Amino acid sequence: MSKDHAPSIKDPDLYETLRDKGYSEEKAARISNAKANPDMHPSEKGGKAPPYEDWTKAELYERAQEIGIDGRSKMTKAELIDALRSH
């Protein structure tokens, strides 16, 4: 029988199983709650983003700005792609 958990745990049995396997409380809660939600599929990969080569230089620059890549204003499109991939 599973322990009494906060109401935020949607599948307490799975939560306990994951905790017994050594998962952190946070990770066990995320996985058990996602599995309990029929609209979520935690074992499947997320959406597919187009490859950086298909992005415009402005889009690449904006993404580089979001993650704080230094020197981005002087980079070519190819350099931005390399910097984003290595970050």
Rank of each mutant, 00 (worst) to 15 (best):
S86L: 02
R85I: 04
E25H: 14
A29Q: 13
A83N: 12
I31P: 06
K74V: 04
A49D: 05
R85A: 00
Y15W: 08
L60S: 05
I81G: 00
I81A: 00
K21H: 07
Y52N: 11
P12C: 08
T56Y: 04
A36E: 10
K57E: 15
D11N: 15
K48W: 08
S43T: 04
N37I: 02
S2F: 11
E25V: 15
E66F: 07
A34C: 09
G47E: 08
D13N: 08
Y61L: 15
D54V: 06
N37Q: 05
E59Y: 00
S24K: 12
Q65P: 00
A29G: 10
L14A: 11
A78C: 00
R85C: 03
A6G: 12
K10P: 01
A49S: 15
S43R: 06
E79F: 01
G46W: 06
S86F: 03
E62W: 10
P38G: 02
R63W: 05
P51T: 09
S32G: 13
Y15S: 05
D11M: 03
I69R: 01
P38Q: 12
A49Y: 06
S32T: 12
S73W: 00
L60T: 10
A36S: 11
Y15V: 01
A6Q: 08
R85L: 06
A34R: 13
G71F: 06
S2D: 10
E66T: 12
K21T: 07
M75N: 02
S8Q: 04
K77C: 01
E66M: 05
K48L: 14
K57F: 03
N37L: 01
E26A: 15
D20N: 14
A6C: 02
L80M: 03
